[in-house]
């Protein structure tokens, strides 16, 4: 009986070793055109001041509060793309395709391009990361590897960008780890952003995409024009404490400002308990 048990264990161990040791058999196909599945946490068009769910550092919060949407009327920003820190959370469709080595037929890279992004190659051919002196881009430099049938993507060399399209900044020292998990026609896209400057802790977000065979992503040309007649050198922003829109979202949806304003504390249930406790305590105090 003991010998039989040992044999079973050995067989199981051998099977596991075989499975883990041959990832090529577990590789997944991701190519195709995918449409985002939007939900209440991923609506695409946030309000100014809607910072909930983002563990901004104090400095990140101050920058977000100073942000003025009119900034994007400046010629340098009119055609900026959505960067890697935001785009997978956005409302745009994405095209994913494989680049294959013409000789070995091995995958050189997966590429992903959204309607309003630049091409994002995720290299799988073992190339080295660029120098610390190399330029950074909105897509960054990414390498990728299969972990079982998931694709793990590691991105560095990112430009300053935003986590949400209402001015929540990401820094050019931030890095991004992403996972693609496919179940049939559904792709779960998980991002883990680490930013020593503008996040106080790593931010993990997951988005869903659905494969749509008939989807064709159109071109998205952009032409810089003179959008606003303003004196040269003006950069739109709000001086500290003067942004009138920061409380608008919280007031409209009755979300306490302590939560709407973002930060790590607003992501944890303890804050909700505290807010409820204070809200309940207020009427009681009034009765006394």
């Amino acid at each position: 009986m003991g010998i039989l048990k040992k044999s079973r264990r050995a067989l199981l161990a051998a099977a596991l070793t075989a499975l883990l040791g041959v990832p090529a058999f577990a590789q997944m196909e991701f190519s195709g055109e995918w449409a985002p599945v939007l939900d209440e946490d991923n609506a695409g068009n946030p309000y100014v001041g809607e910072f909930i769910g983002i563990p901004m550092s104090h400095s990140g919060m101050l920058r977000a509060q100073a942000w003025n949407a009119s900034l994007y009327t400046l010629p340098e920003w009119q055609c900026r793309p959505h960067g890697a820190m935001y785009i997978s959370r956005g409302p745009s469709q994405v095209r994913i395709w494989k680049e294959v080595d013409p000789d070995s037929r091995e995958i050189v890279a997966f590429h992903a391009e959204w309607l309003r992004s630049i091409d994002n190659p995720y290299y799988m051919d073992g190339r080295a990361r660029p120098s610390k002196y190399s330029p950074h881009t909105f897509g960054g430099f990414s390498t990728a590897e299969f972990i079982g049938d998931q694709l793990k993507i590691t991105t560095t060399h990112l430009k300053e960008d935003y986590y949400r399209r209402n001015g929540v900044p990401s820094s050019d020292e931030a890095t991004l780890t992403q996972y693609w998990m496919r179940r049939g026609d559904i792709l779960t896209w998980t991002t883990i952003a680490t930013d020593p400057l503008y996040l106080s802790e790593p931010m993990i977000r997951a988005s869903e995409y659905r494969l749509i065979p008939a989807l064709r992503i159109p071109p998205y040309p952009c032409t810089v024009i003179e959008e606003v007649d303003r004196p040269a050198g003006v950069v739109p922003h709000y001086l500290p404490g003067q942004n009138p829109f920061l409380t608008e979202w919280g007031e409209k949806y009755h979300v306490p400002q302590a939560a709407a304003g973002g930060g790590a504390a607003a992501m944890h249930p303890e804050l909700a308990k505290k807010i409820l406790k204070e809200a309940n305590a207020a009427p009681a105090a009034a009765k006394k």
């Binding site: 900034l71 340098e76 900026r80 002196y133 330029p135 950074h136 430009k159 300053e160 050019d172 950069v235």
Partner: peptide
Amino acid sequence: HGRVGDTADLAYYRD
């Protein structure tokens, strides 16, 4: 000092 930049980096710095 530091890495190579481009239009966007220069604009960020100006901002």
